[in-house]
Simulated assay, not measured.
Amino acid sequence: MIKILIVEDELPMLQGLKDNLEFEGYEVDTATNGADGLDKLLTNQFNLVLLDVMMPELSGFDVCKAARAKGNKTPVIMLTAKGEEIDKVLGLEFGADDYITKPFSLRELLARVRAILRRSNIEGNNPDNQVYQIGNMLVNFSGYTATIEGREVKLSYKEFEILHYLHNHKNETVDRDDLLDAIWGTDYQPTSRTIDNFILKLRQKIEVDSNDPRIIMTVHGVGYKLVV
C-alpha cells in the first residue's frame, strides 16, 4: 500500500487531508511539527510527503533541506498559505518536487499526488500499476489504459477516475455525494445527473447489457456499487 506522510500543524487541515487520503486508499501517517516530521521521514519508508512550510520547531524548508542532505529522496509536495514566487523557488531549490498554495481544492491535491506518484515510477509499491479485470475489461489505472479482448477501449479521464474510485471501494455502496466530491472536488459541484450520465457511459463500455447492469449496480436513493 502507498504510504503518505502529512506534516501540518493546523489540526483541522491535517485531519481533513488524512481522512480524504485514507478514503482514497492510501496509508497515512502524520506529524504536527517539523522536528517530528523530519524524524518520521528519516526513520520510516514513505512514498510521498505533504509538507507544510510554516510550522513550529522546523519549517518545511528546513525539513526538506535536512532530508535531502541525509540522502532521503522521498517525493515532497509543499503546502503553504504563501503564494510569492520566491517561496516557490526556495522550496524547489531545497528539493521539493511540487508546490501547492492554500486554499486548494481536494481535486487539485489528489491530481498532484497521483501525478507525483506516477512520475516517481513507484512500481512495486503502487497497486495502481497492476492490471485489473472488471467484467470483460482489463484496466490499468496508472497507465490510463483499458482493453476488452485485446481491443483498446476509449475511456475519458473522468471515466477512469470514477471507475478507479469505485474499484477502490469495490463491493461497497458509494454515496453519490462522496463520488462527486472525490472526482470534482468540493469547490465545484456538478448535479447528480452528471454522475449518472458518466455511469451510463461506463456501463455501455463494461456491461454485456447496459440496460441490465451486473457490474456497476445502482443502489437506489444512495449511489452505486462496483461488483467484482
Score class of each variant (00 low, 15 high):
residue 2 I to W: 12
residue 3 K to W: 01
residue 3 K to H: 10
residue 7 V to N: 04
residue 7 V to A: 03
residue 8 E to G: 11
residue 8 E to Y: 11
residue 10 E to D: 10
residue 11 L to E: 12
residue 11 L to I: 15
residue 15 Q to P: 04
residue 19 D to H: 05
residue 20 N to D: 05
residue 27 E to N: 12
residue 27 E to A: 12
residue 28 V to C: 01
residue 33 N to I: 03
residue 36 D to H: 00
residue 38 L to T: 00
residue 39 D to G: 01
residue 40 K to R: 14
residue 42 L to A: 08
residue 42 L to E: 10
residue 43 T to F: 11
residue 47 N to K: 10
residue 48 L to I: 10
residue 48 L to R: 11
residue 49 V to A: 11
residue 51 L to G: 05
residue 54 M to N: 12
residue 54 M to C: 08
residue 54 M to V: 12
residue 55 M to H: 08
residue 56 P to E: 04
residue 57 E to K: 14
residue 62 D to H: 06
residue 66 A to E: 11
residue 67 A to R: 00
residue 70 K to S: 15
residue 70 K to Y: 13
residue 72 N to E: 03
residue 75 P to I: 09
residue 80 T to Y: 11
residue 84 E to F: 09
residue 85 E to G: 01
residue 86 I to P: 07
residue 86 I to T: 13
residue 86 I to Q: 15
residue 88 K to N: 05
residue 90 L to M: 14
residue 93 E to D: 15
residue 94 F to S: 10
residue 95 G to R: 05
residue 95 G to P: 02
residue 97 D to R: 06
residue 103 P to L: 06
residue 103 P to F: 11
residue 105 S to R: 07
residue 106 L to K: 02
residue 118 R to M: 10
residue 119 R to M: 11
residue 120 S to D: 13
residue 120 S to W: 04
residue 126 N to F: 10
residue 128 D to Q: 14
residue 130 Q to L: 13
residue 131 V to K: 14
residue 133 Q to Y: 03
residue 136 N to R: 13
residue 136 N to Q: 13
residue 137 M to V: 13
residue 138 L to T: 05
residue 139 V to P: 00
residue 143 G to L: 11
residue 144 Y to C: 06
residue 145 T to I: 05
residue 146 A to Y: 07
residue 147 T to D: 05
residue 147 T to Y: 09
residue 150 G to V: 09
residue 151 R to E: 14
residue 152 E to H: 13
residue 154 K to A: 15
residue 159 E to T: 06
residue 159 E to K: 06
residue 161 E to G: 02
residue 165 Y to W: 04
residue 167 H to A: 12
residue 168 N to K: 15
residue 168 N to E: 15
residue 172 E to D: 12
residue 173 T to P: 09
residue 173 T to I: 14
residue 173 T to K: 08
residue 175 D to P: 08
residue 176 R to M: 14
residue 177 D to A: 07
residue 177 D to C: 01
residue 179 L to E: 07
residue 180 L to W: 05
residue 182 A to R: 06
residue 183 I to A: 02
residue 187 D to V: 10
residue 188 Y to V: 07
residue 192 S to E: 02
residue 193 R to I: 01
residue 194 T to I: 03
residue 194 T to L: 02
residue 197 N to T: 01
residue 199 I to Q: 01
residue 201 K to T: 08
residue 201 K to D: 08
residue 203 R to K: 09
residue 204 Q to I: 04
residue 205 K to R: 09
residue 207 E to L: 05
residue 207 E to W: 02
residue 210 S to V: 01
residue 210 S to N: 02
residue 213 P to M: 07
residue 214 R to Y: 06
residue 216 I to R: 07
residue 217 M to A: 10
residue 217 M to E: 15
residue 219 V to E: 04
residue 220 H to A: 12
residue 222 V to A: 10
residue 222 V to M: 13
residue 225 K to C: 15
residue 227 V to N: 14
